[in-house]
Design a protein around this nucleic acid. Structure first.
Lengths: 193, 193
DNA sequence: AGGTCTAAATTTAGAGCTAAACGTAGCAGT
DNA sequence: ACTGCTACGTTTAGCTCTAAATTTAGACCT
């Protein structure tokens, strides 16, 4: 079937008999092959990357059964969550979904083709286009969101509640920090609304 | 796919006084709009997602300057890390990179076209193909890996070392757990629901 | 008014992925 | 020897993204 790469044994032999830790093995392999390689970030960045892949693949499969794709659900969700009148500018959608303007155009075009959203020029602001959820689009969100979120909660189930809270905190801190860093670094552009 | 994503400034007004937390705002927006929505996973899953996106985008930009793409570097890195003779079967590459067999074929074909790897049938094992790093491929890894890893360490710099260690631990635990769960699921879940 | 600037969205080219169909080649049972 | 099974890699169709080029329409000079 797919990318599920279920069992992983990491790069090398995972050593002796200790519980296998594929991510740690990657750092160890770099050190073995290239002593001095700056591996300090691997434990965090690679784990995050792999978890995102697992969650993403799983979500895609869950949604495929419902005949929706993840990009479309993301668009519909952003609109649904924004509350009445379920309308946002394409610009705002791009910011909230972290994708380029071109990607927004394409997502909206696809969703519009399927009758899930409608597009119309914003009055008052000349060149901006507003996107609104249709009744059908609204229904799709209602029919799928709980499923997706419930499934994800299930996947986190193995981690004790206190651990989940700790993890949430650490990730929040890191996310804020990385965002600031990249914001400053890359964009001199004053992007915050 | 940026999932339930939102970015800075979150969904609703993040005002109110507390420091803005866009991810928490997403959960709050769902609860406001659809009381009872199972939002418990959002603090972890959405953060992971957004971090993966930020790291990934950044890595792409760093590598673009060196004229390499992330998929190719991933392939070359897996081979490089595996040590002499820098050779793995396509099957093994897919497992380690968490991508489908088709994706491996395409990655290898692209890299082969650029002279970075070579393909040859494995002797001994009938239907399997082995992929080996060429001298050029080896050079590309040496020229870029430190850059990428160093950059990523820099991005984590804002998080105190103890926090990094805690985070690494929690992510390792979660990753192992999610992997087991998805692995089992695929095996048990043979039919549809 | 007419030309230029600019901010917004869209379109295009091309990378990259998944899922599924396909091609191949040993192997196992009869 | 023949038939079908199985394990592997490759190809194809279709989706989705980014970056860059293009379109669009007010705004700002002179």
């Amino acid at each position: 079937m797919a990318s599920e790469a279920s069992r992983k044994a990491g790069d090398g032999r995972s050593g002796g008999g200790a519980p296998s830790d594929p991510v740690r093995d990657i750092a160890a392999a770099w050190e073995r092959e290239r002593p001095g390689t700056p591996v300090s970030s691997i434990g965090i960045v690679t784990s995050i990357w792999q978890l995102a892949k697992l969650f993403g693949d799983d979500r895609r499969r869950v949604l495929a059964r419902a005949g929706v794709d993840t990009a479309t659900l993301d668009l519909l969700s952003v609109l649904r969550r924004s509350g009445e009148p379920y309308t946002l500018s394409t610009r705002e959608i791009g910011r909230r979904s972290m994708i380029t303007a071109g990607a927004v155009s394409q997502r909206v075009a696809r969703a519009e083709r399927e009758g899930l959203v409608a597009r119309h020029p914003a009055q008052g602001r000349p060149r901006t286009v507003e996107v609104t959820l249709t009744a059908t689009g609204h229904e799709v969100v209602e029919a799928t969101v709980d499923q997706v979120l419930h499934r994800e909660a299930e996947l986190l189930d193995g981690l004790a509640p206190e651990k989940q809270a700790e993890l949430t905190d650490l990730l929040r801190t890191l996310l804020r920090d990385v965002q600031d860093r990249l914001g400053d670094d890359r964009l001199t552009h004053v992007g915050e609304d």
